[in-house]
Design a protein around this nucleic acid. Structure first.
Length: 446
RNA sequence: CGGGCUAUAGCGCAGCUUGGUAGCGCGUUCGUCUGGGGGACGAAAGGUCGUAGGUUCAAAUCCUGCUAGCCCGACCA
């Protein structure tokens, strides 16, 4: 993308309403624009980031065996009356009427809808397990939306639902999603820690929240530092091997990691040596839980079991706050100049900065680099605006492009361009071709 | 939903106390000089002062209603 032809309405000053850093930076970088309280338009840069995150979630869900679907945003109230939640949900649910005066609602979640679909479409226990998911906009009429997209009323969420014949199957499905979440967040360059969540009326210990550690997080978290240091690495996962998955889950859940909701100071002190006790703040980006037959019983969603008689599904649901992840990534990756995108989710991976637009040699070198980057499959941004160098650096650093290729007449005389890393500031002078090769190696695109 | 606050140009703000031609900085446009970390100078465009009503010769300014938004708390992906 040529910056001169892009729509990037950046701000030098911070809008007054933005309090936390991700909100400020997203507004300044022209990623979002508020439409009304808790509702945002996604401008090109924000939309690009959102799509990248969405793509990773899709990919990891499908690798773990989940199947993508797409359910509507508008749902019928009747479906929710079946489950009893139409009355139970309260004012957070946005209720609307259609022209025939039928009660409708903008979905805050999709348990009812998916249970209806599974109940109608899955006939035999032999078809199980089935995990269906979608990435769709949700609406929850929060009393007090805040922090930009981090707590909006409209938000993009991945919600998945598993269907099994028994508890053992449901546990396997739960573990699939548990490990899938670890992979998903790790791939985005995030350190997400699964923490025991409040299981509410259902009970049991099969519910976890995934939190990203960040100073501005909403929840206080207490954990054993050993858990924060765990990593899957690039290890292959055999998703069909229930015992192996359980092993991974156990590794992450054996130690202490809880939010303030479930924290018990005495247990914390007893289980974790003082040197490893970490008290921090976190942003919830995922939540998984097993809920058994809660919806399938009341909605009469059943399959033929091994004996031929109908059996209610054993289910779980699995959410990732896709739009919230953008805020969380920024909260965890920024400095005083702006955002610092992890390479895997960066809206633009590399920026070509022409220090002297209009200089024939600089222009030609930039054009050539830009073409070659595109040819190699890079998401490249060419700052070809007729701006001064300082202004270009400030813009590119604000939007957090992980790598800069700086091209100017001075360097070109020596036959070099400068390759600079946004996070470390490390800079090296290389010939244009060497710089390209270095980047290709860095991104695995040789 | 309790408490606090705000609404004036794209953004950040002043003006309101004491009613009388709507201002500043940034950004934007044009020109000149510039050009390796948010340049300088000159010129210009841009505002039903959130909205409805009231008081007054006269309202951004005083009064009333409404709406929108922000912050703290309680609540939540």
């Amino acid at each position: 993308m040529r910056l001169s032809r892009y729509f990037l309405p950046i701000l030098k000053e911070t809008p007054a309403e933005a309090q936390i850093v991700s909100h400020r930076l997203m507004l300044r970088a022209g990623m979002i624009r508020q439409a009304s309280a808790g509702i945002y338009s996604w401008l090109p840069l924000g939309y690009k980031a959102l799509r990248k995150i969405e793509a990773i979630v899709h990919d990891e869900q499908q690798k773990a065996g989940a199947i993508p679907v797409l359910m509507p945003t508008i749902q019928s109230a009747d479906l929710w009356r079946e489950s009893g939640r139409y009355d139970a949900y309260g004012p957070e649910m946005l209720r609307i009427k259609d022209r025939h005066d039928r009660d409708m609602l903008y979905g805050p979640t999709n348990e009812e809808q998916i249970t209806e679909i599974a109940g109608a479409g899955i006939r035999s226990y032999r078809d199980l397990p089935t995990i269906l998911y979608h990435i769709q906009w949700k609406f929850r009429d929060e009393v007090r939306p805040r922090f930009g997209i981090m707590r909006g009323r409209e938000f993009l969420m991945k919600d998945g639902y598993s269907f099994d014949i028994d508890k053992a199957g449901a546990t396997h499905s739960y573990n699939r999603m548990f490990v899938s979440y670890l992979r998903t967040f790790e791939r985005m360059g995030l350190k997400a820690v699964p923490m025991r969540a409040d299981s509410g009326p259902i009970g049991g210990d099969m519910t976890h929240e995934f939190l990203i550690l960040a100073d501005t997080g909403e929840s206080a978290v207490f954990l054993d530092s050993d858990i924060a240091d765990l990593s899957l690495g690039g290890d292959k996962v055999d998703w069909e091997d229930a015992a192996a998955l359980q092993g991974i889950v156990d590794r992450w859940t054996n130690g202490y990691a809880r939010t303030d909701e479930t924290h018990e100071e005495a247990v914390f002190e007893a289980e974790v040596p003082e040197a490893r006790r970490v008290t921090a703040r976190g942003i919830e980006v995922g939540h998984i839980f097993y809920f058994g037959t809660k919806y399938s019983e009341v909605m009469n969603a059943k399959v033929a079991g091994p004996e031929g008689s109908p059996v209610a599904f054993e289910s779980g649901s699995y959410g990732i706050g896709v739009s919230r992840l953008i805020g969380a990534i920024i909260e965890a990756n920024h400095d005083d100049k702006g955002m610092i995108w992890p390479e895997a989710v960066a809206p633009f991976e590399v920026a070509v900065i022409n220090l002297k637009q209009g200089d024939a040699e600089a222009d030609a070198a930039c054009e050539s680099l830009y073409d070659k980057l595109n040819a190699r499959g890079f998401d490249a941004l060419y700052d070809d605006r007729n701006e001064r160098a300082g202004s270009k650096f400030a813009t590119i650093d604000l939007i957090g492009v992980p790598w800069k290729l700086i091209v100017g007449p001075r360097g070109l005389k020596e036959g070099v361009v400068e390759l600079v890393n946004r996070r470390t500031g490390e800079a090296v002078n290389l010939s244009p071709d060497e710089a390209l090769n270095r980047l290709a190696a860095q991104f695995g695109r040789a």
